[in-house]
Lab assay of single mutants.
Amino acid sequence: MAAGGDHGSPDSYRSPLASRYASPEMCFVFSDRYKFRTWRQLWLWLAEAEQTLGLPITDEQIQEMKSNLENIDFKMAAEEEKRLRHDVMAHVHTFGHCCPKAAGIIHLGATSCYVGDNTDLIILRNALDLLLPKLARVISRLADFAKERASLPTLGFTHFQPAQLTTVGKRCCLWIQDLCMDLQNLKRVRDDLRFRGVKGTTGTQASFLQLFEGDDHKVEQLDKMVTEKAGFKRAFIITGQTYTRKVDIEVLSVLASLGASVHKICTDIRLLANLKEMEEPFEKQQIGSSAMPYKRNPMRSERCCSLARHLMTLVMDPLQTASVQWFERTLDDSANRRICLAEAFLTADTILNTLQNISEGLVVYPKVIERRIRQELPFMATENIIMAMVKAGGSRQDCHEKIRVLSQQAASVVKQEGGDNDLIERIQVDAYFSPIHSQLDHLLDPSSFTGRASQQVQRFLEEEVYPLLKPYESVMKVKAELCL
C-alpha cells in the first residue's frame, strides 16, 4: 500500500493539533497551500530580480507567473513527485505547466533550498508574528487579574506546605514575570531571523556568478533584492546548502521555554482548584465526569500541561538535527523538520489560546482563602504575639514557653481530632496574655502579614508589564474561544 493518505478522510490519521486544537490561522501558515504558494512567490521574486539585473526574462513571463501564483494543481504535483521522487522539481514542473512561456526560467540558477529553506524562514517569521500578540493578550488578562487582587491576602506555599502570606495578585505576578520573559525572547528570536537568500547549491553562489558572467556586484544585488522582497532586513552571508540548523534550535528553545512557563502556571491553577481557592472557567453544560456528576475538573489547565510537556520535548529534535548536518548538509534534517517545526508552533498556539481562555474567566473564592488563612495564621502570628507581650512588660522566655504549650495543644486538636485551630481562643482565655487581649485582632490582621506584596504588584505592572504590552494595544480586544 502506498504511503500517505487522504487526510480529510475519517479513515486516515490526522494530527489532533490540526484537527482538534490549533487555530485556523496557525494551521494555514503550515498548510501545503501556504507552503507551495510561497515557493511560487519566491520563484517570481527571483525572476523579477534577475530581470532587473539584466537576464533575458520578459515582462510577459513575469506576468504569467504572477497570474498563476494561486493556480496550484495539487493532484498534478503529487503525481509528479511520485514520478520524480523530488518535491521541488515536482512543483517546478507543475508551475511550468500553467506558465508555459515562463517554464524555462522558473528556478533559474537556484537549488531546492532556495524555495525550501527560504519558505521555512518566512513561515517561522509569520508563525512567530501570530504567537506574539496571543502571548501579549494572556499577559494582559493576567495583569488585569493581578491588579484587581493585588491586596487580597492568601496563604503562600513553599514545598506545598503553608508559608508566609502573600497576595493573590502577587502570586499571579510570578506567572506574568515568566511570560514577559517569554514574550521578550519570542520577539528577540523573531527579529534575529535572517533570510537564507540566493546562495546556490553549497552556499557559494557559483551558479549565479556564472549567470551574471562573473559580476560579483550583481550577485550581491540579486541576494539583497530577493531578501528585501521577502520582507527581511538581512540575509546570511555564510550558508551551506541550507541555512544553519542552529536557527531551528533557537526558535524551538524559546517555544519550549514558553511551554515550561505555561505548565507551571496551569499546575498552580490545578492545585488551587483542589484547594477550592480558584477555578478555571466551567461552562453551564460542561460535564466533569461521566460517573461523578459533582466533579469540576480543571480540564483546560490539564490540557495545557499535557501539550506543554510535548512542546518542551520537541527542542531535542533540532538539537540532534543540527549535530548531524555533515559538511554542507545531509538530508537527516528533512523529514524531522517537516514534523517538529509545525508541531512546535501548533502546540504553542494551542496552549496560548487555551491559557487566554482560562485567564479571561478565572474565578476566585475569597471566603475559602480566608478560612485557610484562619487555619494557619495563628501559628504564624506567634512571633508577633511574643513581641507584643514583651512590649507590655512580659518575659520573652516565659511567653515563648506559654505559646509553645498552647500551640501544641491547638495542633493536637487540628491533627488528632480534625478540629479547627483554636490557638487564639486559648490565648484569649489565658490570664497571662490579658495585657494584649485587646491587640489580638490587630495582630491577626492578614494584611499585616503580606509585606509589600501589593506595592510590588503595582510597581511591576507599571514599570515592566504595561510598557512591554504597549506595541500590542491594537490587538488586545480579541477574545479566545474554545470549541473543545
Rank of each mutant, 00 (worst) to 15 (best):
D422N: 11
D317H: 07
D144Q: 15
T201P: 09
M476Q: 15
I386H: 13
I176C: 12
L275R: 09
E462T: 12
E376C: 04
Y21K: 07
Q41V: 06
A381F: 04
P366M: 05
V405D: 13
D332Y: 15
F236V: 09
C340M: 05
H91W: 07
L130S: 13
M225S: 05
P56Q: 01
E328D: 10
R171L: 05
L152V: 03
M389I: 06
I176D: 04
F212Q: 08
K295S: 03
S289K: 01
S407K: 01
Q205R: 00
P24Q: 11
V88E: 05
L271Q: 05
M299D: 02
I238N: 11
L319C: 00
L130Q: 06
P281T: 01
R190M: 15
E64H: 07
H86E: 07
T239W: 01
S334E: 01
G156A: 08
S261T: 10
F236T: 04
T158Y: 00
R125M: 11
G4C: 15
T382C: 10
R137E: 06
A77K: 05
A22Q: 07
P467D: 13
E81Y: 06
N185S: 09
L108G: 04
G104A: 11
N353Y: 06
I424W: 12
V405G: 11
A18R: 15
V368M: 00
R372W: 03
I265D: 01
D248G: 03
K82V: 11
L482C: 14
E64T: 12
A342N: 02
D216V: 08
R270W: 04
S301M: 14
R188Y: 09
L84P: 04
K284W: 12
T382F: 02
E360S: 02
Q184F: 13
E464F: 06
T119A: 12
T330N: 12
E277T: 01
P133H: 11
L124I: 10
I62H: 04
I427K: 06
I369C: 11
R141M: 11
F212N: 05
G104R: 08
S412H: 13
M89K: 00
T202C: 14
T227K: 07
M476P: 15
P471M: 14
P467M: 13
M380S: 02
H97P: 06
A392G: 15
Y114D: 05
Q320A: 06
L46E: 05
E370G: 09
A410M: 09
L355W: 13
S359E: 07
A230W: 04
V29E: 00
E60H: 06
A348F: 03
I339N: 11
L362D: 00
A381L: 15
T166N: 03
R14C: 15
S301W: 06
M476L: 14
E376V: 06
T450Q: 14
N421T: 06
V414R: 04
I269L: 03
V368L: 03
S289F: 02
S438H: 15
V315K: 02
N185A: 13
Y432C: 11
C98S: 10
H91Y: 14
M476G: 15
R141K: 14
C266V: 13
V29L: 06
L352W: 01
L84E: 11
E250R: 10
S261I: 03
H159V: 01
A381V: 10
Q61A: 08
A110D: 09
Q177T: 14
A348I: 12
R452Y: 10
R329E: 00
L121A: 09
R396F: 04
E473A: 14
P100M: 11
Q456L: 14
A388T: 08
E425V: 07
T52C: 08
D6C: 07
E481W: 12
G4L: 13
D332R: 01
L142Y: 00
K75F: 06
A206D: 07
L186E: 02
A102L: 09
Q428R: 15
R459E: 12
R309M: 05
V429Y: 00
V226S: 01
I105C: 07
D87T: 00
V226E: 03
L307K: 14
N71G: 08
L469W: 03
H91G: 07
C27G: 11
P435I: 10
C98M: 07
G197C: 14
I105T: 06
G8E: 14
L132H: 14
R459N: 14
C399I: 09
S474G: 13
I62D: 00
K276T: 09
I57P: 04
L255M: 11
D182N: 05
H437Q: 11
I424G: 12
V457M: 07
R14Q: 13
A392T: 04
G418R: 07
E64M: 07
S448I: 14
N274G: 02
L142I: 10
D73E: 05
G116Y: 00
A230Y: 01
F145T: 15
L124F: 07
P24T: 12
I403V: 07
Y21C: 04
L377E: 05
I57T: 04
C27Q: 08
I385V: 11
C304V: 07
A431Y: 04
V414L: 13
A47M: 10
E148W: 04
H442Q: 15
Q439C: 15
C483Q: 13
S23K: 15
H437A: 14
L131M: 06
I269E: 01
R303V: 03
F460W: 08
Q356Y: 15
L331S: 00
R396C: 04
L341K: 15
D349P: 01
K477D: 06
V92D: 04
K367P: 08
L440M: 10
V324S: 08
Y432Q: 10
Y365Q: 04
I72T: 02
F327L: 08
R40K: 05
V198D: 05
V168G: 02
M225N: 03
H263R: 04
V478D: 12
Q161G: 03
G288R: 03
Y21T: 02
F460A: 06
D191I: 09
E376D: 15
P281I: 06
L271F: 06
Q164P: 01
G203S: 02
P10E: 11
G197H: 00
E64V: 09
A3F: 07
Q205T: 08
L311F: 01
E220A: 09
D144H: 09
I358R: 01
A206L: 09
L307F: 14
V475I: 08
R37N: 02
A49N: 01
P293V: 02
Q456R: 05
P435L: 11
D117Q: 00
H310D: 03
N336C: 09
T202I: 04
G418N: 00
D248K: 08
D11R: 14
Y21V: 02
V92G: 12
L307D: 00
C27V: 14
L423Q: 03
T154G: 03
M389W: 03
V189C: 15
G169H: 02
E80V: 05
D317P: 08
S140T: 14
T94Y: 15
A150Q: 11
T244G: 13
F212H: 03
C99M: 13
M225V: 07
L461F: 15
L55R: 07
D59R: 06
S23D: 11
E64R: 08
D215E: 14
G96Q: 05
D216Y: 08
S438L: 13
E25P: 07
E328Y: 10
D191T: 09
A431W: 03
G418I: 08
L124Q: 05
D430E: 15
Q205Y: 01
M181P: 03
A344C: 02
E463R: 12
I287H: 09
F157Y: 08
V198K: 00
A235C: 12
T321C: 07
V226L: 12
